[in-house]
Design a protein around this nucleic acid. Structure first.
Length: 362
DNA sequence: AATCCCACCAACCGCCTCCAA
DNA sequence: CTTGGAGGCGGTTGGTGGGAT
């Protein structure tokens, strides 16, 4: 037996609110408050609406001092930094942005901010990919299957695609892995996956992209984490001033370099505290089933066209109709889990400010 | 001018948590 | 301790409008 519905679905109106309904709800709440019971409220004032719907309408639209649209760069930064720290907890994020609702922020993130970030990154990567493809051919002979990251991970000769203003401060050991120069289709997968996107953002900082473990990051944010990681509005104190963009970028560089393995062996970077892996199991299976392609292309085939040319156990190949679903899953999750995403941290963080200032005006 | 496509966003749905009985 | 109602939340849907073809 399922849960009883909160209201009589047959007798409640759905869809957009009329001005009359808005006026009724607003005037009643302004005079009497909600009475602590949203479910009973619509009946009291003669609205054929579900109590939850009334609550939502009030909180997201009718409540005083609500701001709609026109997110500032400052707000972008706050949203990003909190998203990286605590994930898609929109109500917590909204609590740090006066006048913004969780629904607004959620919509803004899903429709614009996320695209802004990844769109910028894709463009950078596509440009860099062209340059890297030239160099890659000269280095293929040095690839060793047992050390799959040798070429792509430790490559001091590749042309990096760090944004120009960052390259002067780059740790000399860091170079840009080939496998990150993915096609837009592959990175597109991240658009649809909160966890993957957040992992990516966390990964680029070695899994320590939060203000607790890294005081350099978000120095104006004072976020404390209860032991059960149950973050509430009350234990987050975020000042109105967010850190300068270059502070965030600088922090990314420092923490990223600390995870760099100059020996070029299979590099392990902890995704989260107490967790580490060289590759996700799916990726390792994919690699073991395609040794020729690993040897030939390094890890590029994992993000490139492997879905279209998948080597089966018997040596034959399959297209996406054979392994479509699983490969798409690997594509998304592995990209978010692969080590050495140093460059992306700067690109992503950089992407916000840069685009807000110079590109694609909203 | 008609149609298609896509971005945006208000609103809904269903799950989870809290708390009083 | 259990149960059920209400609030809260995040994910998703669907309507709408504007731009492209």
């Amino acid at each position: 037996m399922g849960r009883a519905p909160c209201c009589d679905k047959a007798n409640v109106k759905k869809g957009p609110w009329s001005p009359e309904e808005d006026a009724k709800l607003k005037s009643y709440i302004e005079k009497n408050g909600t009475g602590g019971n949203w479910i009973a409220l619509p009946q009291k004032i003669g609205l054929k609406r579900c109590g939850k719907s009334c609550r939502l309408r009030w909180l997201n639209y009718l409540r005083p001092n609500i701001k709609h649209g026109g997110f500032s760069e400052e707000e972008d930064r706050i949203i990003l930094s909190l998203y990286v720290s605590i994930g898609s907890r929109w109500s917590v994020i909204a609590a740090q942005l006066p006048g913004r609702t969780d629904n607004d922020i959620k919509n803004y993130w899903n429709t614009r901010l996320k695209k802004k970030l990844l769109g910028k990154q894709r463009r950078d990567q596509q440009q860099a990919r062209k340059a890297n493809n030239l160099l890659k051919k000269q280095e293929d002979n040095r690839l060793v299957y047992s050390i799959p990251f040798t070429s792509s991970f430790v490559n001091h000769n590749q042309i990096p695609y760090w944004p120009p203003q960052l390259t002067t401060n780059l740790p000399s050991a860091i170079s840009i892995p080939n496998y990150l120069n993915s096609s837009s289709e592959n990175f597109q997968g991240l658009n649809n996956d909160h966890t993957s996107l957040r992992k990516l953002l966390m990964k680029v900082n070695g899994g320590h992209y939060d203000s607790v473990n890294d005081p350099q990051l978000l120095p104006h944010h004072n976020i404390t984490y209860p032991s059960d990681n149950n973050i509430t509005q009350t234990n987050i104190n975020l000042s109105n001033t967010t850190p300068p963009l270059d502070t965030m970028i600088h922090t990314c560089e420092i923490t990223s370099s600390s995870h760099f393995n100059p020996e070029g062996e299979g590099v392990r970077i902890g995704m989260m505290e107490g967790q580490s892996s060289t590759f996700p199991p799916e990726l390792e299976e994919l690699m073991s089933r395609n040794p020729q392609r690993v040897a030939a292309d390094g890890l590029e085939f994992l993000y490139g066209d492997y879905g279209n040319n998948f080597v089966n156990n018997d040596g034959s190949t399959s297209d996406t109709t054979t392994c479509g679903e699983s490969s798409r899953w690997v594509e998304m999750s592995s990209l978010a889990s692969l080590p050495n995403l140093e460059s992306d941290c700067s690109v992503l963080v950089q992407g916000i400010g840069e685009e807000s200032r110079f590109e694609e005006p909203l």
